[in-house]
Amino acid sequence: MHITFSDDPPIFDGVDLEINFTALVDGQPVVCAITVEALEDHFGAASAREEHVLPAYEQGRARIRAVCAEALDENGGQPVVLRSGLFRVAGMEPK
C-alpha cells in the first residue's frame, strides 16, 4: 500500500471539532481527521477555535501524517480519525 498526502489545505469542521485532511492511498483520496482534543493535547492548540487549531495542525503536520500513515496501513486504507490517545500508543510518541 502506497500512502501519500494531498497538498490541499486542511478543513476545520466546527461541528465535529476536527480538522479534515486528505490522504492518498494507492492514489485514491481518503478523508482523514484529527480531533481538536488531540491538537490541544499534543500540538499546543490553545482552544477549539479555528484560529488556534489550524496553526497547531500546521506545526504538527509531519507527525500527524506519520501517525495517520501508520493507522491507514494497519486498517487497510480506510478513513482514520486521529484521537488524542493514539498519539500515546507505543511507537507513536515523538523521538
Rank of each mutant, 00 (worst) to 15 (best):
1 M>C: 03
3 I>V: 14
5 F>G: 10
6 S>V: 03
6 S>P: 05
7 D>E: 13
8 D>S: 15
9 P>Y: 02
10 P>A: 10
11 I>Y: 00
12 F>V: 08
12 F>T: 00
13 D>V: 00
13 D>C: 01
17 L>W: 00
17 L>N: 05
18 E>W: 00
21 F>A: 01
22 T>L: 12
22 T>I: 15
23 A>H: 08
24 L>T: 03
26 D>R: 03
27 G>C: 09
27 G>I: 01
27 G>V: 02
28 Q>P: 02
28 Q>A: 15
29 P>D: 06
30 V>N: 02
30 V>K: 05
31 V>P: 04
32 C>G: 03
32 C>W: 03
34 I>S: 07
35 T>M: 02
35 T>E: 05
35 T>R: 00
36 V>F: 09
38 A>M: 05
38 A>N: 07
39 L>P: 04
41 D>T: 09
41 D>L: 01
41 D>Y: 01
42 H>T: 09
44 G>T: 04
46 A>D: 13
46 A>V: 04
47 S>V: 01
49 R>S: 11
49 R>P: 04
53 V>N: 02
53 V>G: 00
54 L>M: 15
55 P>D: 04
56 A>Y: 08
56 A>Q: 06
57 Y>Q: 03
58 E>V: 13
58 E>Q: 10
59 Q>E: 12
60 G>P: 15
60 G>W: 08
60 G>Q: 07
62 A>G: 12
62 A>Y: 12
62 A>Q: 14
64 I>T: 15
64 I>L: 15
67 V>L: 07
68 C>D: 09
72 L>N: 12
72 L>P: 09
73 D>I: 00
73 D>Q: 15
74 E>N: 10
75 N>I: 04
75 N>V: 02
76 G>R: 08
77 G>I: 00
79 P>T: 06
79 P>W: 12
80 V>W: 10
80 V>M: 07
81 V>S: 14
82 L>P: 09
82 L>T: 08
83 R>T: 12
83 R>H: 10
83 R>I: 03
85 G>P: 08
85 G>N: 10
89 V>D: 14
90 A>I: 00
93 E>L: 11
93 E>T: 04
